[in-house]
Write a protein that binds this DNA or RNA. Sequence first.
DNA 1: AGTTCAACCTTCACGC
DNA 2: TGCGTGAA
DNA 3: GTTGAAC
Length: 281
Amino acid sequence: MPELPEVEVVRRGLAQWVVGREIADAEVLHPRAIRRHLPGADEFAARLKGRTVLSAERRGKYLWLPLSGAEEALLAHLGMSGQLLVVDPQTPPERHLRVRLRFEDGGPDLRFVDQRTFGHVMLTPLVHGVPEPIAHIAPDPFEESFDEAEFTRRLRARHTEIKRALLDQSLISGVGNIYADEALWIARLHWARPTETLTRPKIVELLAGVRTVMGAALLQGGTSFDALYVNVNGESGYFDRSLEVYGRRDLPCSRCGTPIRREAFMNRSSYSCPKCQRKPR
DNA sequence: AGTTCAACCTTCACGC
DNA sequence: TGCGTGAA
DNA sequence: GTTGAAC
């Protein structure tokens, strides 16, 4: 498993190419890619033109670029299949290209590509440095503002099941269904474990698991499950992905050899090792 | 109040 | 070969 | 992955 800070690779990748650059033109190729908070594609494009990108930030599945002028940012929500790509302007349009930003310097485009249209980009005001629509989203474990003691306190005050808590974006962000299952396996925790029974060291272990899984995924460009989902380099993360439990029903646990089980939970799949992750009584 | 569930979309793998 | 289904 | 409606 790669070591920290993998996130910085992604962030630097964005910052390196984008920061300080003036937007020449914004093109919306799919109306739903900018749904919400804006009248339409034309105004979206008009408001971006001539603005300069100041920096690049990330929170969970969100990336945002603060812009010159007003306290505003271009916010991208990647969803499950969305990607924010930095590519040579000569590159032919991607099959699922939704929004394309060209720059005055003639350098690489910033392209929002999203097969399933679950993600979107928008222009939004910043409040305390964070886009207004995601003000309720808690920091992810890679952010400097992520406070482990605070997280521990709030987690144990929840009185809920641990996986439910991990998927709660107001408590911790960046952890989806797959990452949750993987992190729980690493920490040898059953998804139904009551949060108030977790010891401080166990929570530390779990967070380490979350960072390991999330970091590996970020290295591959965020969401990359199917071979058709590609990373920032346009390569599939499919083959070098190393999932221990997710999607491995009946396959042996790499720690103890016990067949991995699949259970329905919260209207989705949950995978775990019956031996390593004992169900709480 | 807490929880489940369908909807939002496109594509692909699978079985018949 | 295609059509419906389930899953991402 | 997120939202909002329905139990």
